[in-house]
Every structure is written in C-alpha cells, then in structure tokens.
Amino acid sequence: MAIIITGGDGYIGWPTGLRIASRTDERCILVDNFARREWVESIGSKSAAPVAAMDERLTAARNVHGLSNLSFVEGDLTDRGFVDQLLTVHEPRAIVHTAAQPSAPYSQLNGERANYTQHNNMQATRNLVWGLHEHDMADTHFVETTTTGVYGAPEFPIPEGGAVMEHEGHRDAVPFPAMAGSWYHLTKSHDAANLRLAHRQFGIPISDVRTAITYGTETEETRADERLRTRFDFDYYFGVVAHRFCAQAIAGYPLTVYGKGEQRKPFVSLEDAVEGLAQLVVSGQSAEHTVYNQVTRPISIVEMAETIADVGAEFGLDVDVTHVENPREEDEEHAMEIENDRYMDLIGEQRQTFESGMRDILETLTAHRDTIVAHEDRFLPDVLEE
C-alpha cells in the first residue's frame, strides 16, 4: 500500500509530500509532469528561489531527512492509460490530489488557455476517481485541494461545505452553489460536484479541501536545505496577491491597494495548508464525504499591504502603501466571514501567522532581489507601469 501525492513538483504538492513521508513509513509517490515550470516560463517569468531538479530534491530528502520512502513518477494525469498503470502498480490507500493548472489569470488569457485549464484539471480528477472505481479501489481515501474561490463573495457567512435552502416552507441541505469567477475556479466547482457524485455512486471516501489564498516560502521540512525549497512565483499570473506585493516592496515600488481595500480575502499559510493535508492521510481520517475550508482567517487587502510595509522596515525597506482607483467591479468593504471549525480542529492551531509568513517571504526575496528586479514587468500593476 502507498500514498500518492499528485502535483508533487508544485508549490503545495512538494512540501506536502515531504511532510507526509516524514510522518509515515509507507511508500509515498510523488506524481507530476512538470507542466507548472513550463506555464510560468511561457508567460516570461520564473520562480524567485531556484527550484532544484527532482532527482536533486529526492537526494536531499534522503540525505537531510532520511526519507527513503519518497519517490517520483513522471506522467500526465489526463492520460487514462497512465492513471490506470499508476493505480494498479502502487495500489494507494490514499491519494492527495494537488495537481492542477492553478491560475485564474492564466485561464482567462484566451480561449486556448481556458480550454486547456478546464480539460487538464477536470480530466485528471475524473481519471483518478473512475480509475479507483474500475480497479476496485473504492476504499482509497481521495483528498483534493479545490478552492475557496467556488464560494464567490456572498453577503452571509460561508458554511464549511453545504448550505440550507428554503423554498415554500421546505428546507434541505444542498451543496453550495458554484459562484466561481474564472475559468480556473469553475474547474474546481465542477471537481467538487464530481467528487460528491463519485462518493455517492462509487462509495469513495472524499475529503474536499477548499484551499484559501496560500502564502509563504517555507515549511518545517524545506528550511533544512536549499535543494528542498518549494517554488515561489511572484508574477501576475501565478503569484498570489501577497507574493506580488512583497515583490513590489523588494523592487522599490509602492504597494497599490485598489480602492478602499477593505474587502477581505481568505488566507492560509503554506505551513498550515501542508499540515492539514498530512493530517488527513497520516492520521487515518477518511470521512464519508467531508468539506474543509482550508482557511486560518480572512485578511483585508489594506491590512495585508500595511503588514508587508511594517515587516519590510525590518529589512531596511521603505515601503509606501497607496490607494488607486479600483478597476474591478467589487465591494471594496466586503467583510467576508467563512466557517473553518472543521479545518482548525484538524490542524489543532494555526502554525504560522500572516506576519511571520511575510517575514519568510521578504527574507527569500531579498536573497533573490536580482531575479525580482529582472522580472518586474511580470508583476507590476498597470498603474505603476504607465
């Protein structure tokens, strides 16, 4: 028996593989086709911190952490034949599915990227759950990182999974409606629906982990050696807003807050995200069908910018926070509330605060300032480029 971690070369998948392998003697198989490296290169950017080749990463994992149970298989999960072989050879008791094209802006570039994103993401998930069913592995615990983006930004507290619908005096629990705002986010809405269907039809135990905006550069395991670092993207397409703001600070540009900036977004640190995924498979938890809001707390855009400015001062950075006209149609004072009791029970307590996460990021980016400056056209908002 084994544990498979898809997207094992990625930002979340790689450190998750390290964490799981360090907590179990079971075989842990990372799976990836290295597409993320190609996507980022195609839009003219790169990881701020160099990403080691997979063989170097595995060697470091063995030498530094003694992880002889961690291995790698290269392959494309949209290929049914590859998925069938992967499942029959390794017979996983659990799959942590983090593989996806994860960028909303990339999926919005043009019709080709939208089609690619939807085919890549949904086909991979369908191949995996149908493969488990067709190979009589319906007891395998399937854990997928979907996204809190499926919820949109409603004016009521977001439940951890389902909601209650009332009509003409009748009430019932229903899946939360898909309110996604991009072709990427809609893939995760479809995945969430397909996972629910796979549980109902095939009996596969499902953990739908709806991941918030994830920040940070390090986890407990990756800090030990540079070869173990995960990738860190800071560009407009693959770098989340907190990472782009940190890049602006390093390059000497003000942090541009759209409008009032009081709209809150859900956040989770890389350390807290990895811990939750590891707990789900290592502790043996495999609920029937459970949704987790992988969030530690919502943070407003202006609070985020001001925190980065304060932490930046520790690194000798003079960071200004400026407010510019908001080009987006959104509520600039949205006080998002999102339930996360189930997820917090899983991890016990928050392991990294937003402030300490920004400190890690600025430390990493300071060491690679030349890379940031050389690619500043990839992360600066239009208002600063004019």
Rank of each mutant, 00 (worst) to 15 (best):
M122N: 11
Q263C: 08
L86I: 06
T16Y: 01
H170C: 09
A192P: 02
P205H: 03
A224S: 15
E134H: 07
N293S: 13
E329Q: 10
P157K: 10
F202N: 07
R359A: 02
H289D: 14
P102S: 15
Q108L: 12
F82A: 05
S103E: 07
A48P: 02
Q123I: 14
D79N: 12
L67N: 02
G111K: 11
G239P: 08
L277P: 07
T307K: 06
E275K: 13
R244Q: 13
A173H: 14
S283K: 14
S300D: 05
E376R: 14
A180M: 03
G312F: 09
L195K: 04
E363R: 12
P102H: 10
E337Y: 11
E226Y: 06
D310F: 04
E262S: 09
N120E: 15
Y237T: 03
D272A: 01
I5H: 02
D84Y: 03
P92E: 03
L30N: 03
F202V: 01
E168D: 15
E26I: 00
T24A: 00
G316M: 04
A163I: 09
V89P: 12
M54I: 11
T211W: 07
D272N: 08
M137F: 04
M1C: 01
D191I: 13
V282H: 02
T117M: 09
D310E: 13
A224P: 11
E337R: 13
L58M: 02
P159A: 07
D136H: 07
T371F: 11
E339C: 13
F238K: 00
Q248I: 10
L67R: 00
V209G: 06
A53E: 15
P102D: 13
G252E: 01
H97V: 10
G7R: 04
R351S: 08
A99P: 01
C246G: 03
F72A: 00
E325D: 08
D370Y: 04
A35T: 10
A335K: 14
L86P: 05
I12L: 13
Q108M: 15
T230D: 10
R37L: 11
F156G: 03
V40K: 04
V174Q: 10
R227M: 04
E385L: 14
I158S: 06
R36F: 09
R80L: 12
A273H: 15
